[in-house]
Design a protein around this nucleic acid. Sequence first.
DNA 1: TTAACATATGAACAAAGGCTCATATGAATG
DNA 2: CATTCATATGAGCCTTTGTTCATATGTTAA
Lengths: 134, 134
Amino acid sequence: MNVDAQKPMTENRSEICLEQCFHPETVERVSGFMASREDLLAVAELFKALGDGSRMSILNALLCSELCVCDLTMILKMTQSAVSHQLRVLRGAKIVKSRKEGKNVYYSLDDPHIAMLIETGFEHVREERGGGDV
Amino acid sequence: MNVDAQKPMTENRSEICLEQCFHPETVERVSGFMASREDLLAVAELFKALGDGSRMSILNALLCSELCVCDLTMILKMTQSAVSHQLRVLRGAKIVKSRKEGKNVYYSLDDPHIAMLIETGFEHVREERGGGDV
DNA sequence: TTAACATATGAACAAAGGCTCATATGAATG
DNA sequence: CATTCATATGAGCCTTTGTTCATATGTTAA
């Protein structure tokens, strides 16, 4: 989470890479192609929220069924507090949504993209271990 | 990255959730559905590696073209050292691959899943900001 | 209202992560 | 071989993050 990048590039150039080393047109073209800083950060935040073992376990469970916090606590064998804290992160990232029913709060995946991301992730790591390439 | 969960659940049950609160069949069913701990951690690691602004910028650039470290340094206006460190993380996560040519090392996305993940991520955040739902 | 329970949250602490600086490695060139 | 340049890496520093513990909030039932 930096992407600051707003320092004068003139100075940068002299320290790091003398003018002959890089490919100016490529750099130009790719620079033009880059997503907005805002989008980049948003996507990074999304993946960061997916990038934790506990949260991935929660999501894996929610992939199967809507669940209340207590169920999750049982399934993941984690503290209720830890589960709640992680659900907060997931809620903040709009990865899960919640629904209140009496004393219970039921969580589920927020939208189909999320399920797709998670499933693609699993595919990727399984193939990687399995064969090497596809 | 915890997912330890190997403490005796008997004790857990009495502390956290008395027997009447949860849905035993659901818990049972979902527990059976869960991916292996190994896969969960691998996926979490994958997303964690994607979950950083600097790395997402690198990947966004690589989505467009194969690039050497120096090009990336220019495009992202980051230190060469910082870029190299992040490329190491990406390499370790098998998200990018590298190819050496003379003094330069060229990086590119490792496989199509990666591009798909990133693009789905962008779609998600754009739709989220744009409309609210699809 | 009081008690019991499900969930949320704040503080504190330990661990992980990203950046910079300095330096190492390894290739090309004189 | 010595130099130069592209890239990689280790150490140190500071920030972020995940967990636990204690407690707050809010809902249902007695």
